[in-house]
Design a protein around this nucleic acid. Structure first.
Length: 648
RNA sequence: GCUGCUGUAGCUCAGUGGUAGAGCGCGUCAUUGGUAAUGACGAGGUCGGGAGUUCAAUUCUCCCCAGCAGCACCA
């Protein structure tokens, strides 16, 4: 047999007979490497050590020190080991798929009985037994017929379906963890004992549709997390506990920002503190939009179905709309209306008033538009996903050749705002043409190219969401992450060729003829509700001073200082600082604790010493040290911090 | 919407087939305390809603509502 040459990471080359396995190479390099090896990369493809190598290639051995490969294998083997454990305990359970995900893996099972938390403990125990058996992981390549027969004989209908989905001519790799077998692309560890038995944990069970389609059966998905060692697992679990403390729903209560109740699911009762944040953010956005060349408008909440029929929403979006049927005696006409789920059709109505000229374009129209959408009950989530919300919405009416420049301007606009609000990093997703769409391919080509090129010109390489665009045009999504790493789309920028057509928007061009404008739908925060939720979690409630609903509490240490407290508060307020007095008959420790928990950024404590000296004792949130300062200095400092970033 | 879980005082939670309990918070009184909980006393609940089983239901069963986790959805 011919020899092959493997080039190692350090540049050294070694020759072996073709068909040598990675494990053999590892052992040949050194006995200890042979023991430590977990997998290899052949021409940068991550592969099993047991797989023969047939051609010249670059070659690297991986050990547990190679974080990326080690974690992938640990998690992937955990998935298989868990599936084996489940079938050993409940042989009737049908297996499906179990991929590696962030921090761990999941595996979907079909079982009549739901898995209970006690079951998870049982499965975990069984997994540890399997790991301790140190069973070899074996692999074979099968042809399709053999795989189908095997799964039919074993009554594994989901696996049969999976085999049938794999394109003809592709190898079917079968893996055995001991006697337990699964169809899998691999790669895997050498034996089950390489999985650290104390570094994984089964987290929870939840339903998930087979192949992600809600028309299919619902399976039971078990999630697990796994790491290289016990310490990493512990750190991860600790991080989750910390994240739970930042949950906006918890902080919203503790900081007295808002509440929600059964009578209005998915809608927010904003308390004074929360509404303070909301209005500050709105004031800020209004200034930014004005500076950005937008005109602000406001449009109706309740709109006749005729407009929704014309816009296409009645047909495509009706099940998500709150329908308002006025059928009382007092109604002038028996009309069917809908609460607006979005503002775009209303903005076109404003655009359509009077004749527009090409000189009016681009026309940037903004509205803090309150929308209501009947979101599926299971989608609701705190103030992040609600049924009633207000978008910082805007529509740019422009010519086709202005899409790119308007997009570029918008990305800078958004980036600057995100930076002001504490988000220097955010993700951008680009969604291109879906299968069902309006408009010609030629127009889509242009729109996609314009969005992409403007995004790249801004130095952003977007993640591509193939086929996820709206039916009317491609879109950019600006994504922020919550406390536990869930993604939320906040900003959006979408090209729309359809709505101007449907609602017959037009302008007079240089040539004196009517032309169709393009609409760019854009929202920067997305909605105030969601963005405030993200802000709260991002800052753990400790909002920047200018956005903090309660900025300063002046607390008396003794009753004799109460008058001085009142005077101090008045001076702070005169300087435009949100200050309040705490002259309750409580110890200073108590007051400090309470306002610290309430995330008040600055506590000014005053006792008789301060009264006599005309000073205040300043304590900043999260800082145990205090400093005694004269009030005018404090006011000067705080006034600077209280100034919104765009006004500094 | 789907699968599973949960719903007891303002909050966090305990508990029981014989109509309920703690801590915090709230109120009153005492206390004037120097930077994350001063003490005593007191008020506060149709045990998510409805129906059923039962002599008796907050507890068991069913339906509904809401919330939580995940899935699907987010034009």
């Amino acid at each position: 047999m011919a020899d092959i040459t493997l080039t190692l990471p350090d540049g050294n080359q070694r020759s072996y007979p073709a068909g040598t396995t990675g494990l053999e190479v590892a052992k040949d390099i050194s006995t200890s490497l042979g023991k430590k090896a977990i997998s290899c990369s052949v021409d940068d493809v991550h592969r099993d050590l047991s797989r023969p190598i047939d051609t010249d290639a670059s070659f690297a051995i991986h050990t547990m020190q190679d974080e990326a490969q080690a974690l992938e294998l640990i998690r992937h083997d955990c998935a298989h080991i868990m599936a084996r454990a489940v079938q050993e305990i409940w042989p009737d359970v049908k297996v499906t798929i179990g991929p590696v995900i962030k921090n761990g893996w999941y595996y979907d099972f079909d079982r009549e009985e739901p898995f209970t938390p006690e079951d998870l403990a049982t499965i975990e125990k069984k997994m540890k037994e399997i790991i301790n058996k140190r069973d070899l992981v074996r692999t074979e390549t099968w042809d399709r017929a053999r795989a189908l027969k095997h799964y039919e004989d074993n009554n594994e209908p989901y696996k049969v379906e999976l085999v049938n989905m794999i394109p003809e001519g592709e190898d079917l790799r079968m893996y055995w963890h001991g006697d337990w077998q699964d169809l899998c692309r691999g790669p895997h560890l050498v034996h089950t004992g390489q999985v650290p038995a104390d570094a994984f944990k089964l987290m929870n069970v939840a339903g998930a549709y087979w192949r992600g389609d809600s028309n299919n059966a619902m399976l039971q998905r078990i999630y697990g997390v796994a790491f290289k060692n016990k310490e990493d697992l512990k750190a991860h679990l600790h991080m989750l506990e910390e994240a739970a403390l930042r949950d906006h729903r918890k902080l919203g209560r503790e900081m007295d920002l808002f509440h929600m109740q059964e009578e209005a699911p998915g809608q927010v009762f904003w308390h004074p503190n929360g509404w303070r944040i909301y209005t500050l953010l709105q004031d800020y956005m209004r200034r930014r939009q004005t500076a950005g060349g937008y005109v602000e408008v406001n449009t109706p909440q309740v709109v006749d179905r005729k407009l929704w029929e014309a816009s296409g929403h009645w047909e495509k979006y009706q099940e998500n709309m709150f329908i308002v049927e006025v059928d009382e005696d007092h109604a002038r006409e028996k009309a069917v209306n809908a609460l607006k789920p979005m503002n775009c059709p209303c903005h076109v109505q404003i655009f359509n008033q009077g004749l527009k000229s090409y000189r009016d374009l681009p026309l940037r129209m903004a509205e803090f538009g309150s929308c209501n959408r009947y979101e599926p009950s299971g989608a609701l989530h705190g103030i992040m996903r609600v049924r009633g919300f207000t978008q910082d919405d805007g529509h740019i009416f422009c010519r086709e050749d202005q899409i790119e420049s308007e997009t570029a301007v918008y990305i800078e606009f958004l980036r600057d705002i995100y930076k002001d609000l504490g988000f220097d990093n955010f993700r951008v997703k680009f969604s291109d043409r879906p299968e069902k769409r309006a408009g010609s391919d030629e127009v889509w080509d242009k729109a996609e190219a314009a969005l992409l090129s403007a995004t790249r010109a801004a130095g952003i390489e977007p993640e591509i969401n193939p086929g996820e665009g709206a039916f009317y045009g491609p879109k950019l999504e600006f994504v922020l992450t919550d406390a536990i790493g869930r993604d939320w789309q906040c900003g959006t920028h979408q090209v729309d060729f359809v709505l101007p057509e449907r609602l017959d928007a037009n302008y007079v061009g240089e040539d004196g003829n009517k032309h169709r404008p393009v609409m760019l739908h854009r929202a920067t925060l997305g909605s105030f509700e969601r963005f405030i939720g993200i802000l709260i979690e991002n800052f753990s409630g400790k909002l920047p001073f200018w956005l903090a609903p309660r900025q300063v509490v002046v607390a008396s240490i003794v009753t004799d200082a109460n008058d001085y407290v009142t005077e101090t508060v008045a001076k702070l307020q005169a300087a435009g600082i949100r200050a309040e007095a705490d002259v309750r008959n409580e110890k200073i420790n108590y007051k400090v604790r309470e306002h610290s928990l309430g995330k008040v950024p600055v506590i000014l404590a005053v006792g008789m010493r301060e009264v006599e000296e005309g000073t205040v004792s300043v304590r900043r949130l999260g800082n145990k040290q205090t400093s005694v300062q004269v009030l005018t200095d404090v006011i000067a400092e705080l006034s600077a911090d209280a100034t919104p970033p765009d006004m500094r």
